[in-house]
């Protein structure tokens, strides 16, 4: 049987699953972020946190809450890493080195989940559960909260209610609701499903197994399924094991593989649907989600082609590009996973990206460079796409000579400056990061390959960190003070600087009057806008990286 049919079959199953559930999830998310009622368990949480969930925060206060909450998270997790040897269930592992503990703390709080270490060989169960998994939940919730605040900013207007002037909601209410109503229940169900299909969930340490050939192998047990569920659902990506979702204990079958891909795509698409409901125009959410789907489809198509056609001498001689891929999944499922994990901010892998074909690796990198908007991180995907929507109406406004507006909100000088700074932040960080990596001896010291592939290894690492993806190309050793510090800084600023611009813009939109749609208003729910927005994403963002891509994957493809 041709390999094309199963490849198309899994894509069809995924699309069907998403089409059936995204509208329901989207409606539930919209209700979560607009409801006035608090659940009993939420009220208890607010009392413990000593916060008033009904206080409508000014964007400044909302942003400071995001920063304060994240700072505490980093310091706590850093402490966990440095004191690991004294913690119960540490499995005898020593403390993480200082820069490694810091990198890990920043990585998990920023929803990046970049791992310089092998999970099963460095982290005990308590740190996995109380440190890393907790951050998997709350870092995802922070991103979703910011996206909800942005949607609120667009939905509100001080003209209708003067009390909303610059106010975008309550961060702690958004955070607690996201965790308790959305992430926990779905993760629980997904974890049970994974256990049912063979993922492990225990408190075992190492087991030495004797193989049929007389050798021995050490297998590490642990609370894997529970971490796996939120790892995918929250677009986190940090695996229990070093090989992540390529490990049979994390991702046992092609069915669990499909569910893992579904989980990482479901909430980002549902957030787009929820956006339409929050701004009271469902078509807006469908348009934004449509662009996400279009960009993801392009990436899936290109990556699947690259891996299945297997261009290059070595794959042609071997009869397929199976290096670094699980035989359980094959080329097509590996390509679908790679496109989804880099289109979202997940960063989990079921195949080693260093072994993707040169064009395949280039697509994965470009996917991240787009800012992970196809469909992006659980919250960052939506606000990233909405920022580009503002750029699109601005450019369209320039073309027809009208004042640009989005959902009735005028895009003035200050607004477009904020959006421009947002769009520029990640490229600036990424390009400074790769410049630093090639300028110091410590950068190339960790790479495995020379030439353009070695450059790609470094480029992938800084791209992954600056975009808060967390997937690793492999082939590069980053557990050094230089790489841990550089990538930690990229993750930190790559997460919070854009978030601040998003919240500032949300506040401005909430304060602005709503302009009535006129003859010069660009409809933002029609196919024309979908095409324009897709073009803006590819041209404005994508072109920034073309020169640096030429130095790595493009040169490698041509050689």
């Amino acid at each position: 049987m041709s390999e094309v049919l199963p490849a198309l079959g899994q894509i069809a199953a995924l699309v069907l699953l998403l089409a059936l559930t995204v509208p329901l999830l989207g409606r539930f998310l919209a209700h979560t972020y607009t409801s006035d009622k608090h659940l009993a368990v939420e009220r208890v949480t607010y009392r413990v946190l000593r916060v008033d969930p009904d206080a409508d925060q000014h964007w400044r206060s909302y942003a400071m809450s995001v920063l304060g909450f994240s700072l505490v998270g980093i310091l706590l997790l850093f402490g966990f890493g440095r004191l690991q040897q004294h913690l119960p269930l540490s499995l005898g592992f020593p403390a993480l080195p200082t820069e490694g503990a810091w990198n890990t703390a920043v990585s998990f709080v920023t929803n990046t989940n970049w791992q310089w270490y092998s999970g099963e060989a460095a982290i005990g169960h308590l740190m996995q559960m109380s440190g890393l998994t907790v951050q998997n939940f709350v870092s995802a919730a922070v991103g979703m909260a910011v996206a909800a605040a942005f949607a609120r900013g667009l939905a509100r207007t001080s003209q209708e209610d003067s009390r909303v002037d610059g106010r975008v909601g309550n961060f702690f209410a958004d955070l607690v609701r996201t965790v308790l109503r959305v992430l926990l229940p779905i993760s629980l169900a997904a974890a049970f499903l994974f256990i049912l299909f063979g993922a492990i969930q225990n408190f075992s340490g190492d087991h030495v197994m004797h193989t049929l050939t007389g050798g021995s192998q050490t297998l590490t047990g642990g609370p894997v399924a529970s971490q796996e569920a939120i790892k995918q659902l929250g677009t986190n990506g940090g695996g229990f094991y070093n090989v992540n979702s390529a490990h049979p204990f994390e991702n046992p079958t092609p069915f669990t593989d499909l569910i893992q891909i579904y989980l990482e795509l479901a909430l980002p698409f549902a957030m787009a649907w929820a956006f339409g409901l929050i701004v009271k125009d469902k078509r807006q959410g469908i348009a934004v989600g449509g662009v996400m789907a279009l960009l993801l489809s392009i990436a899936v198509g290109l990556l699947t082609w690259a891996e299945m056609a297997a261009p290059g001498t070595a794959p042609q001689l071997a009869g397929g590009a199976m290096e670094g891929k699980e035989t359980r999944f094959g080329e097509a499922a590996s390509a679908l996973f790679a496109a989804s994990t880099t289109g979202t901010s997940t960063g989990a892998v079921n195949a080693m990206h260093d072994s993707l074909t040169a064009p395949g690796g280039g697509v994965a990198m470009f996917n991240m460079m787009l800012g992970e908007i196809a469909p992006g991180g659980v919250g960052s995907g939506l606000y990233g796409m909405l920022m580009l929507a503002v750029v699109t109406v601005f450019l369209a406004g320039l073309m027809v000579g009208r004042t640009p507006e989005y959902l009735g909100k005028k895009i003035g000088q200050r607004e477009i400056v904020m959006v421009a700074l947002y769009v520029l932040t990640t490229p600036v960080l990424l390009l400074i990061g790769i410049a630093a990596a090639v300028s110091f001896d410590d950068g190339p010291a960790g790479i495995l390959n020379s030439g353009p592939h070695g450059f790609s290894e470094m480029l992938y690492a800084v791209t992954s960190a600056a975009n808060n993806n967390g997937s690793a190309f492999g082939g590069i050793t980053t557990g050094t003070p230089f790489w841990n510090t550089l990538l930690g800084l990229l993750m930190l600023f790559g997460r919070f600087v854009p978030m601040i611009f998003v919240l500032a813009l949300a506040g401005r939109f909430a304060s602005a009057k709503r302009l009535p749609a006129g003859a010069g208003t660009l409809p933002t729910h029609k196919p024309l806008f979908v095409v324009l927005l897709t073009g803006v994403a590819l041209v404005v963002v994508g072109l920034t990286y073309v020169p640096v891509l030429f130095l790595g994957p493009v040169v490698e493809s041509l050689s």
Binding site: M64, I74, L489, V497
Partner: peptide, 30 residues
């Protein structure tokens, strides 16, 4: 000692981010 350095790096980064919030919140000049 190195632990303190990394804690200080983190605090400095967040102070910078808080300053950015403050800068963006400044009222516009007409």
């Amino acid at each position: 000692m190195t632990d303190v350095v990394y804690v200080l790096i983190t605090l400095a980064a967040f102070v910078g981010l808080a300053l950015l919030v403050g800068a963006l919140d400044r009222p516009e000049k007409d």
